[in-house]
Design a binder for these strands. Structure first.
Lengths: 216, 216, 216, 216
DNA sequence: GATGAATGAGAATTCATTCAT
DNA sequence: GATGAATGAATTCTCATTCAT
């Protein structure tokens, strides 16, 4: 009994998340209504409120899972043995972009720090943690690709720079109505190029860098 | 008397634009209501419809002016005589970021192409034109800084890459509650660094580029 | 001076009436806005309030003139010498329909008695008077065509019957998007037929009438 | 419990329809607001949108039922055995007028063809169908009463003529504030007379008709 | 005589959410 | 566990009308 019920509940919950994800991948937060989600999930819209505390809570919970998946996959990318460090950074970047672009509408949720009451067990906190880990991961990938050890603050600056680029790529593509594959087919090489250039520039800056500071 | 009336009208119109700008700088398009704007502007919400054709039109008109200003200032930056080409690119970047970050909430309006009926005299068209000009400007600045002539499509790819970075910087900072000055004080150097690295990487890619292609 | 002003005023007034008439001939009362009228009349919408006490007053005044014209033309029709009495009735009917259908949107204003505060100099009163005269005219035409003198109440009943038909023709065609000419080209013969039949039926009823009463 | 809910829903739905009917019987489509309806129905105005797709849909749905009833009753009238053919036509007419006048305000909805996107399952289509059936019914009644077989187009012209009269009667009485019974008490005989005359005229035209065509 | 500026009242509609079952 | 019924708050936008000039 209890088992069956739990299974059913879990299934409904999953259905809601899946439906919401599908809808948010096409439309923005405000454009998706609870009723849309319920319809696609095959349940009543009131049911959603059993599992989630409201629309925003659903959104946060929704974001957490892909982000967990993303983190896992990005980690795996970084420890693949058959790649040189800079190939690894490239692979990391490509993977990151693929994940982010496949969830374009959720991306702002992933990577925008939203003011929110600091509430224990707020899924927003979990999101924050995941974000930070991914950022750290990128830092480690960059460090490895650069091949020299850097002071923490310098690495932070470089990692930020690199992330700006990644964010910019995603942001620039966010409004596109193209599917992920169409997008990558059209712009993938440009994305690669951009990442490569950024990396080269950072490497150059690291090696010769300090005397030729940015003009200011 | 006609003068007085015209003045009054212009004042009201300005008040509406100012109010809208203030509100949009804090909240997003959907979060700001016409009534909010009217209240802040000190007029009835119906008055807004005298001056603008609706909410979206207001938004477009609102975005057009700063963007025009931006274009003018960016042009001026590019023709300042006392700078070397790459200093000019850096200056351009800094100016762009300053402008974009000072209008953070409008930034998506500036740089997100929105599907819209292609309508003569639609202010959206004007926006599109301004966007394109700014992009072209960046392309020319980049070309000049690189110092070699590039085929159009290669230049396009590099310019895009550079813009991704700029977009990313803005997007990353968009949600920050800090004032423009606070933001620049804290992250300005990092922004400069990122731009410099991007430029260096592009330059490197241009010069040694083709043999060492992006892995994949 | 005064003359010039009066002329100008009269011109503006006329322009408003003309514009309103044109618009009401296509769209219904609620669909036409004061601003539409003003635009077509080439004046400010506030000007309309100088000449008319509001939208409804304008409508009444608007209806009066065509109705006066109609009355005049219908009178003329009835006294044309070269027609037999029943040809005259037919001509009257055709003229009535032509007038009514050319002002389809105004027709309800012409012929619908609206509750209204009985106000001296209310144009609604004038309308009422005109309506009554046209009705009386039809009565006389019918009487003449029948060729026998009838008691007042019997004539009233017949005239009413005849008018029901005319009203019905107009009402049935009111919603048609066709122009007057298209409409008459398509249905004119049917209108004639209907009028003819009605007249014949009345004549028959008058002559043999009383023994074969309507079943009930 | 599902039963209880269904009952409640049905009750609400009915309440809305009843309220709307009551309001539309006094005021026109544009004059009745959704909030008026809701208030009279004793529910929130948003509730209306649960049951109907909007104002126009409500109107159509509202019109469909009485029209269905009307059709059924008119059919029954035509097959009553104890009447002669022309008594049947008279009975049909009287029944039609009774129905139409009892729903005066809805009459335009019943019998005015409104332009509308031809949409499967649009209730407007249903209305159109019902209208056509009633018209066909009248045609059959007329044919039977005339006692001779007529070519389709001639019958059509006569039926139209007859309908013009019926429409005219309804239209002329539409604005009256009298109750149905008062109206019939005052004008019923005139209505009968008009119908009788029209029928006699048509019959005359059919029998001797063609040589004495309508002048034109 | 004429007008541009401004407004208040009110329209349809949508949505997230709660309550009774 | 799940749901249908119901709602209140809010949104964009339109219109006839008035007021100062």
């Amino acid at each position: 009994m209890t088992n069956k019920q739990r299974a059913r509940a879990e299934k409904t919950r999953k259905a809601i998340l899946t439906a919401a994800e599908a809808l948010f991948s096409t439309r923005s937060f405000d454009e998706v209504t609870m009723r849309d989600i319920a319809e696609l999930a095959g349940c009543s819209h009131t049911t959603i409120y059993i599992y989630f505390d409201g629309k925003e809570a659903l959104l946060n919970e929704l974001a957490a899972e892909p982000l967990r998946t993303a983190l896992r996959r990005l980690e795996r990318t970084l420890y693949r043995g058959n790649l040189s460090p800079d190939e690894r950074l490239a692979a990391f970047s490509r993977e990151f972009l693929r994940l982010a672009l496949s969830q374009r509408a959720l991306y702002p949720v992933f990577f925008t720090v939203r003011a929110s009451r600091v509430d224990e067990k707020d899924p927003a906190l979990e999101l924050q943690r995941l974000r930070n880990e991914i950022f750290a991961l990128a830092g480690r990938a960059l460090q490895a690709a650069l091949g020299v050890h850097l002071a923490e603050d310098r690495l932070l600056a470089y990692t930020r720079s690199y992330f700006y680029l990644l964010h910019g790529i995603v942001a620039s593509s966010a409004a596109s109505p193209e599917s992920l594959d169409e997008l990558l087919a059209r712009l993938g090489p440009t994305f690669d190029l951009a990442c490569l250039c950024m990396f080269r520039g950072i490497r150059a800056h690291v090696h010769e860098g300090r005397q030729e500071v940015s003009p200011q």
